[in-house]
Each structure stands twice: as structure tokens, then as C-alpha cells.
Amino acid sequence: METLLNTIHKIEDKHLYLLYSSLNTIFKDTRLPSHDLQHHIRVWLHCRGLMIELHKAGLSIDETLIEKALIACFFHDTGLTVTLDEQHGYSSAQFCKNYLENHLSILTNAEKNEIITAVELHDDKSVKAKPVTKPDEMLQLNLLVSTADDLDALGFIGVFRYIEIYLKRGIDLKELPRKVTHNLRNRFTSFTNAYSSLHRYADRQRLRYHETIDFFTRLEADISENSNSTDSPLHVTKILKQKLVVESSSIDETITYALKTQTAPYPSSFFTKLRSELEVTTAIPIY
């Protein structure tokens, strides 16, 4: 375990600053809190956690896999600065290709292509649909990156991310809960199809999945009842819509605003929990 963690930190030490700088440049004119640099850092943290769990389960994680996964995680959604379309993977792959051509000559062409493919196909349903039949298949780069991305759709973070991107894609609020729960179920099913053998890890993710599903189930009920309550998921959704979509505020500004202005228990609790989930990236050193 110590050896794997040391290897991960060595690779992070080698790449993080450069990746961070590259993404800051790519995202400098884009306001998209659901898919910003922090999202890419969290996806890497999920991917890292997944690899650690697989290592504990007896699989061998080599240095090249860690390096490829780190780069792929950091580029997978950069294409959203070009298009908000679900097929943004192609544009992300172009950013990644440029980065690899300019910065990492030590990787072989085959390794670079593997990273580019993982970035391009990270949201491809046909890739996720392939069942895992052997333990080693759990180490496929494509699968690790797309699963790590799926895991950032869970919890309270998942709630704000879905609301922002779906509304910005023009999905009507009335349609939103049904579309989210459908997408979320698919993501979680893909995760369990591949990694349910990691029992304790899967249990932790299931709790986060239920937090998100519960929110959108209640939101659907609020919408159908035409609720005016300020103590509800619908009210939280209205705040997120106003601040993130209409005013283009950051998520931090949104949370600060909500905690200052909302007195009802549900929004207060929601935004407090959201802030504490978002704090995870502050624990990552980027020099």
C-alpha cells in the first residue's frame, strides 16, 4: 500500500502543476462550475481511490497506468469549453492531443493514443455497456476514467452539477428530474456492473447515489405539486438556477449567497453539505 501511494504521489508531483496550468488556460473564458478544474481534480481523486481499492483487492497497478489515468482524468471534459453537447469527448481529445504533443515525449505513441481514446470515449455508453468478465478488465483505462467521472455525479455535488449542465443544455425544469434519474441510474448501474466486487467501496458510493436520487425524486414531487415552499429541493433548484445559470455566479458565490439568505432547514443543510463536499480539493497540493 505504501509503495502504491508513494508512486501515486511521485506521479502527481511530476504532472499536477503542469496539468493545473493547462486547464486554467483552457477554462479561462468559460464559466461552468459543474465541469471546471475542480471537477477534473475530483475525478482524478475518484480514479485514484478506485485504483487503491483495486490494489487492495490484489490487482497490480503499474506506474504507467497511474500516469495515463491522471492525464486522461484531467482532460476528459475540457471539450465542454468548445461545446456543451454530450459529444464533447472529441474536442476534449483534441486538447489532450495538443498537451501530449507539447509536454510528454517520454510516453510511447501507443500510450498516448490510449489516453486520447479514453478521453474521447469517456461518456460513450457503448463502452460502458461492455460487462467486466475478468478482474484485469477492471483496470482498463477507459473504464477507470469513465467510472471516476460517473462517481462525481453522486452526492450533493452531483445535484448542483446536473442542475447546472442540464439547464444550460436547455432541458426544461419539468423534465429535469426524470432525465437526471434516468442518467444517474445508468451511471450507477455501469459502476456496479464493473466494480461491485469492491464491497465496502461500492457501499460508500451507494450512499452517495441515494442522496442524489432522493433529491431528484423529491424535486419531481415538488414540481408536480407546484410547491411554493422555501424548505424544499425545488427552492434549492431555483437558487441554483438563478445564481449558476442566470447570473453565471461561481458555486462558491452561490453557496455563500444561499447560506446568508436562506433560513429554512432544507436549503441551509443542503448548501452546508455541498460546501463540505467541495472542500475535498483543498487537500490536494498543487505546487
Binding site: 501511494l5 481523486l45 481511490g49 452526492g155 463536499e277 472542500e279 475535498v280
Partner: peptide, 11 residues
């Protein structure tokens, strides 16, 4: 032997 993953209450 410390490792952090995203989740509630700071991870």
C-alpha cells in the same frame, strides 16, 4: 497510509 476520496464532510 493516508488516502482521501471525494465524499461527505470534506471527503
Amino acid at each position: 497510509g493516508f488516502h482521501l476520496e471525494p465524499g461527505p464532510d470534506g471527503g
